[in-house]
Design a protein around this nucleic acid. Structure first.
Lengths: 120, 120
DNA sequence: TATTCTAATGAAACATTCTTCATATGAAGA
DNA sequence: TCTTCATATGAAGAATGTTTCATTAGAATA
């Protein structure tokens, strides 16, 4: 992960680094899909691979940043590793995003948040 | 902005697209610096250019996604455009991120959220 | 309307991040 | 310990995103 440089002056680097690390971890479709799945309950890598239809290495690669930022927890169970959500952090944040979309996004063509969003 | 593809199966595309659009807008140091500045109050482009020490085109380019996602508002004022934060959305989210860092990040070398964060 | 000030835009160069493929590690069981 | 199952890791190519430079657009004012 790129560390915020000194190019931007006059701001607290702590804030920028903190938020940048956090948000860029979440700014990825595969990781968001993993989060959505884990919201239903803890699951091991093979479980995620099967329900998401993604390659095993892809799932592992994407789990790493989630764990590193403590958005997801792991525990060993024999050969397997069971991943679970940090609901304490994620629940309120996801709720905020949903609320924002309801209030501020009309879903017009110029709105990337609501546009192209059919259920699936 | 890349629209989330169908490659990831078994998840709600709405959720993924919504969060992806939202978080990738925030996952950028320049945009976070703009947000931090605007938190002090509304400001025009030239103001941001001066306090951030960035090129005007850079500031404008980065303001666009923030406005598109309604994280920042604009109003015209003569020749100028005055930008301001959507506090209603941003305040609780930023608070959640700070809380997460306090609770879950020790700031060790393996923690990208707290590592390298000196005040500035 | 010519000029100046303020800000936005397009396109190319550059940088970062993702995805895939191949391989490695580690635990359990034969 | 050899094999198998479950997962992690490294590295290279592919895909996205960012930054810069040059140019354009709009509003105010002489």
């Amino acid at each position: 992960m790129k560390i915020v440089s000194d190019k931007v002056s006059g701001v607290k680097k702590r804030f920028t680094n903190l938020c940048y690390g956090f948000f860029s971890t979440l700014a990825n479709p595969t990781r968001l899909a993993i989060i959505e799945k884990l919201d239903e309950g803890p699951m091991n890598v093979t479980g995620l691979v099967n329900t998401l239809g993604q390659e095993q290495s892809m799932v592992s690669h994407n789990l790493r940043p989630l764990v590193r930022c403590k958005l997801v927890n792991v525990r060993r169970e024999g050969k397997q590793r069971v991943y679970s959500l940090n609901h304490e952090t994620l629940d309120p944040i996801v709720k905020s995003v949903e609320l924002h979309a309801e209030k501020f996004c009309e879903g017009g063509a110029n709105c990337p948040l609501k546009a192209k969003s059919e259920a699936s």
